[in-house]
């Protein structure tokens, strides 16, 4: 029932991207996002698309699997594209009833579509190829400089990794409770919205209680092992850059230089 959500989930397989240092992937994703907003002509997007395709192929994650988790976001993309299509002022191309489609609107809509789609695919590549633990490790190391201005980086990272760790547990728990109530004849799918909300009570109450119980157990377990926060804490597997990561940074740098310099050429502009 709830197993279909793939966004933000790790996909277990063997690839170079999987083995990269999480810091590279984090920075790479951020830089890729920045690049998407620097382009002013179609050539930039074409380069970004090619780059993204190359990365997807290297990850060995089936493209269909990647797309499957995005069905829910399609609505968001459509709304944004439609709003941009109709709301942009400029030279009118088509006009019917109260709506006007302008040349600028079409260009804007296409641009927004590619931006959002690539943003989502780009970020899902990171989560699909990096385990949540690795990701927070990378974040903790990468943001360590913020400690200077008293940002509790370790605590934030710890909270994030616990939260991420609990997502599959809670999904599983929800699935189990749903099944248990279905076995007692619960009807979750029919009736109007109020009836359905009422039908959720027998699922939500046990779910809340079990989350509190789990949180309590986890806190006790951490305390029993003398967890006192990040001060003086060492890692069993500290993050270390390898030559692979250096190559990845070079590729990333090359991509940024090429895509932005080409993507901002005025000669290739449509308007």
């Amino acid at each position: 029932m709830l197993r279909d959500i793939t966004l933000g989930q790790y996909y277990q397989t063997e690839s170079v991207i999987h083995r990269l240092d999480p810091r590279v992937k984090l920075l790479g994703t951020i830089l890729f996002f920045i690049s998407l907003f620097c382009f002013s002509n179609p050539a930039g997007y074409a380069i970004a698309l090619l780059f993204l395709a190359a990365v997807i192929i290297t990850t060995h994650v089936p493209f269909s699997y990647m797309i499957k988790g995005m069905k829910t976001i399609v609505v968001l993309i459509i709304i944004t594209v439609v709003i941009n299509l109709f709301m942009t002022q400029g030279d009118v191309v088509v006009e019917f009833w109260k709506f006007k489609i302008t040349k600028q609107g079409i260009v804007m809509a296409v641009q927004i579509f590619f931006r959002i789609a690539m943003l989502i695919v780009g970020s899902s590549i990171m989560t699909l190829t990096t385990t949540p633990n690795h990701l927070t490790d990378g974040m903790e190391r990468g943001l360590r400089f913020l400690k200077v201005i008293k940002v509790p980086v370790h605590e934030i990272a710890m909270m994030m990794s616990i939260a991420l760790r609990f997502i599959p547990i809670l999904l599983e728990e929800t699935d189990k409770i749903m099944k248990a109530q279905l076995a007692r004849g619960a009807d979750l799918e029919s009736g109007n919205i109020f009836k359905r909300i009422k039908a959720m009570v027998p699922i939500l109450v046990p779910l809340f209680i079990s989350s509190f119980r789990r949180a309590n157990d986890l806190a006790s377990a951490m305390e029993a092992r003398c967890y006192r926060g990040g001060e003086g804490r060492t890692k069993m597997k500290p993050l270390k850059y390898t030559s692979r990561d250096a190559v990845a940074y070079l590729v990333l740098f090359a991509y940024m230089v090429v895509s932005i310099s080409v993507g901002r050429l005025d000669a290739l502009k449509i308007m």
Binding site: A183, R184, G185, P202, I203, V205, P206
Partner: peptide, 27 residues
Amino acid sequence: RSKVGLVFQYPEHQLFAETVFADVCYG
């Protein structure tokens, strides 16, 4: 499902009502 009753592992985790009686009445 009413004819084949299934009691899950740790079934106490599915209790939700204010009283035991109300919970048993749910089915």
